[in-house]
């Protein structure tokens, strides 16, 4: 029996040692060998699920193995720093998230879009201003009017100070000349729970995150912060339609490689990712999960990153949250 327990443990050690051999993919050559997708968030979240399913679809398309590695922590900074410092051979690809454009300005970590070469963006979920169904306002106009009469009275739940949904609420306040009490929670989920319990009056999280309650008639979404309407909520107007110049405020996800990666390699990766992202299968997956499908190629993604960096820089300066590094 002693033998069996020892065997059991050695097997176990063997298994666990198999999982981390990606760091030094040999050589700087893109051809051959598996790819690694770094996810800067914990396993099981939206970013993880999107990356994993895109990865498994790309495996078939590229006919090579793709491993997903979660490196969460530090407001998503740790995984994104690790990804930017990987060998620039195209074999380590990082799924970057909106925080990439903010972390440096917030003074939290030395990482910015300049450390990456964008390959393709696959997802954008804009902020949606959502209130309980029985709230005394039915449109954005009425909501803003109420807020003007009652400054600081409306409590807006967000996913943490300095998080994208907090910025969204502040951006709305500064664009519409209104002020709110912003209540930070540990993520969008808890903020939505607080809205369901009537502890806050509104949330500014993504449409996808409130969709179940909007569909069941508990919540109503007044407007979304994007250039076009959200597919899942075709009746909800954008801020722009309502006469406010807010642009796109939301969370987004896209694949990037270290900035020194050869152009040729980026092109090859871009082609494979776009081919998969454009497929019917991926579209279905995104719709089922409630994720906004927004595909941008390398060039468009770069332009979008510049635009976002500028926007956050402006917003954080205005909010007095910008830290000089």
């Amino acid at each position: 029996m002693k033998g069996i327990s020892l065997l059991f443990f050695s097997l176990l050690l063997l298994l666990s040692s198999c999982s981390n051999q990606n760091a030094d993919s040999s050589g700087s050559d893109f051809s051959g060998g598996p790819l690694t997708f770094i996810v800067p968030t914990a396993a099981g979240g939206g970013t993880d699920i999107v990356t994993r399913s895109l990865g498994s679809m790309m495996e078939e398309e590229m006919d090579r193995g793709i491993g997903v590695e979660n490196i969460p922590g530090g407001s998503n900074a740790i995984g994104m720093i690790e990804g930017a410092n990987a060998d620039p051979n195209g074999k380590t690809v990082t799924m970057v998230v909106a925080e990439l454009a903010m972390l440096n300005d917030l003074g939290l970590a030395d990482i910015s879009p300049d450390d990456y070469k964008p390959v393709a963006m696959v997802n954008l979920d804009p902020a949606a201003i959502t209130v309980p169904a029985d709230a005394p306002y039915d449109t954005l106009e009425e909501f803003i009017a109420y807020a003007k009469e009652h400054p600081d009275e409306i409590k807006i739940g967000n996913s943490g100070t300095g998080s994208i949904w907090h910025i969204a609420s502040e951006a709305m306040g500064s664009e519409t000349n209104t002020s709110y009490t912003n209540v930070p929670y540990e993520g969008a989920g808890p903020a939505v729970t607080a809205l369901a319990g009537g502890h806050v009056d509104a949330v500014t999280v993504s449409a996808a995150e409130v969709l179940p309650q909007v569909e069941s008639g508990e919540f109503k979404t007044l407007a979304v912060m994007s250039e076009e309407r959200v597919e899942a909520m075709p009746d909800v107007p954008t801020f722009e339609e309502e006469g406010y110049d807010l642009g796109t405020v939301g969370t987004w996800r896209g694949l990037c490689v270290p900035v020194d990666t050869p152009e040729q390699t980026v092109d090859k990766l871009e082609k494979s990712i776009l081919e998969t992202a454009d497929s019917k299968e991926f579209e279905e997956f995104m719709n089922d999960g409630g994720y906004g499908l927004e595909i941008k190629d390398s060039e468009e993604f770069q332009a979008f990153l510049n635009e976002q960096s500028e926007f956050f820089d402006e917003m954080l300066t205005e909010l007095d949250m910008k830290q000089e590094q």
Binding site: P72, G74, I78, A109, T161, G162, P184
Partner: peptide, 20 residues
């Protein structure tokens, strides 16, 4: 780590690993 309400860093000594 990051203070859960105002997002200020505490006792991290500039180490990103301690942000969380």
């Amino acid at each position: 780590g990051l203070d859960p309400i105002s997002g200020v860093t505490r006792f991290t000594f500039g180490n990103v690993q301690l942000l969380g």
